[in-house]
């Protein structure tokens, strides 16, 4: 089970990195989203994996999943929505303003 989660994080990260390195805004945004999944799952996994032990207190139950990473990741998910929205807006604005969705500045602007 651990190797499944670890490999999922690894594959999400690899795919995220590859897409972030693309040259157009849309794949970069997708890549950032994949990295967000990877990071969130990674943080979540820092509480270690527990099956069938949700952190909802019940009488007579002693073992619970670690609630703290869950709480932190919950807000991270919502915040990353806000950040994705901002990045999408910036990408969209740049496209509407310049009619191109390349992420790299043209070479003549670079100097």
């Amino acid at each position: 089970m651990e190797i499944l989660v670890a490999s999922a994080i690894g594959i999400l990260t690899a795919a995220g990195i590859y897409l972030v390195l693309r040259l157009r805004t849309f794949p970069v945004i997708l890549g950032i989203s994949l990295l967000t999944y990877a990071v969130n799952v990674f943080l979540f996994a820092s509480g270690r994996l527990a099956v069938g032990a949700p952190p909802i207190l019940r009488d007579g139950v002693e073992v619970y999943a670690d609630p703290l990473p869950q709480a932190l990741v919950l807000t991270a998910i919502v915040i990353s929505f806000g950040m994705t929205a901002v990045v999408v807006m910036i990408g969209l604005g740049a496209f509407l303003g310049s009619d191109t969705d390349r992420v790299d500045d043209p070479a003549e602007d670079a100097s």
Binding site: E2, T13, A14, I17, L21, R22, F42, A45
Partner: peptide, 23 residues
């Protein structure tokens, strides 16, 4: 880019795995 991505993916995989099998 694929090479960089695979390196990064393998690194996070190993890190997460080591992390998950230890307290």
């Amino acid at each position: 880019d694929g090479g960089v991505a695979i390196l990064g993916g393998v690194a996070t995989l190993i890190l997460s795995y080591h992390y998950l099998i230890r307290d």
